[in-house]
């Protein structure tokens, strides 16, 4: 990776930290503490289930919100505030700027998720006194959540490269919701006929499939995930994020920065 991409990424990370993005960790910590104390007192037998479900869902939602709301401003805010002028008049290529921004935000989300994961495991330890072998699958679920973040970040960046922040947020969030129902979308497609069916199936395959990256439910029930599936999902997320980034680079390369 070129050093300029690294510098842009670390500056993006610094921006997120200085803009107090990581403060969401406090809200998360409060949520986890409250939940684990509460379920410890009221429910029998499903404490672990509740902690894993709640913890992972919260991590996913917090992350998605951060990815979208920072992601949509990554390019458009720099154009609007004209901070981009003094960057691009240096030996920085436009694609390097996009890629650097992506890694900066992805890094922010990884760090954020890391701290949240610690919170989930502490809560698990609190409610069940010791770790179980099945807790290892929680790590896989966390990994899949991070993969989701990569896709959303790339998509938010893609929309940010040509659209206003508000519209970008709407687009990115819609894609997240649609992608979470990807299996059902394919179900709808399968019920259609003829050309519609082909179009709908094509769309269902091109939309990001967040549903297959969501294993919170099965992990909470202690079910494992096959190693080969982990590999394929990793490849899928990387390739999809790369696709969105290519789109962002293409559009941004051709833009006039007014």
């Amino acid at each position: 990776m070129s050093s300029r991409i690294r510098h842009i990424a670390s500056n993006t990370f610094r921006e997120a930290v200085r803009d107090r993005v990581l403060y969401n960790l406090i809200a998360f910590a409060v949520l986890m503490c409250g939940a684990s104390i509460l379920v410890g007192q009221i429910s029998i037998g499903i404490e672990r289930l509740v902690v894993i479900n709640l913890g992972l869902t919260a991590i996913s939602l917090f992350g998605v919100v951060i990815a979208i709301f920072i992601g949509i401003g990554l390019v458009s805010k720099e154009i609007e505030k004209r901070t981009l002028y003094t960057v691009l008049s240096r030996p920085v290529q436009r694609w390097e700027f996009i890629v650097g921004k992506f890694f900066g935000l992805a890094g922010t989300l990884v760090v954020n998720t890391f701290f949240m994961a610690i919170g989930v495991f502490l809560a698990l330890l609190y409610v069940s006194q010791r770790f179980q072998a099945a807790d290892g699958w929680v790590l896989v679920a966390l990994y899949f959540i991070v993969l989701q973040f990569l896709i959303i970040t790339a998509l938010a960046l893609f929309f940010s490269s040509f659209s206003s922040p508000l519209l970008s947020a709407v687009f990115a969030f819609s894609l997240f919701v649609i992608g979470s129902f990807a299996e059902d979308l394919r179900g709808f497609a399968a019920m259609a006929q003829g050309t519609t069916r082909w179009l709908a199936t094509g769309a269902a395959y091109l939309l990001p499939n967040f549903a297959s990256l969501n294993v919170i439910g099965s992990v909470a029930h202690g079910q494992g995930v096959a190693g080969a599936l982990i590999l394929s999902e990793t490849a899928y997320a990387m390739v999809y994020a790369a696709m969105a980034l290519c789109g962002a680079v293409l559009i941004f390369e051709h833009r006039n920065l007014k």
Partner: peptide, 16 residues
């Protein structure tokens, strides 16, 4: 990437 992602998705479908 677009083509690969579709292929990967089909593979993921088969596995799941």
């Amino acid at each position: 990437c677009m083509l690969t992602s579709v292929l990967l998705l089909r593979q993921v479908d088969r596995m799941r």
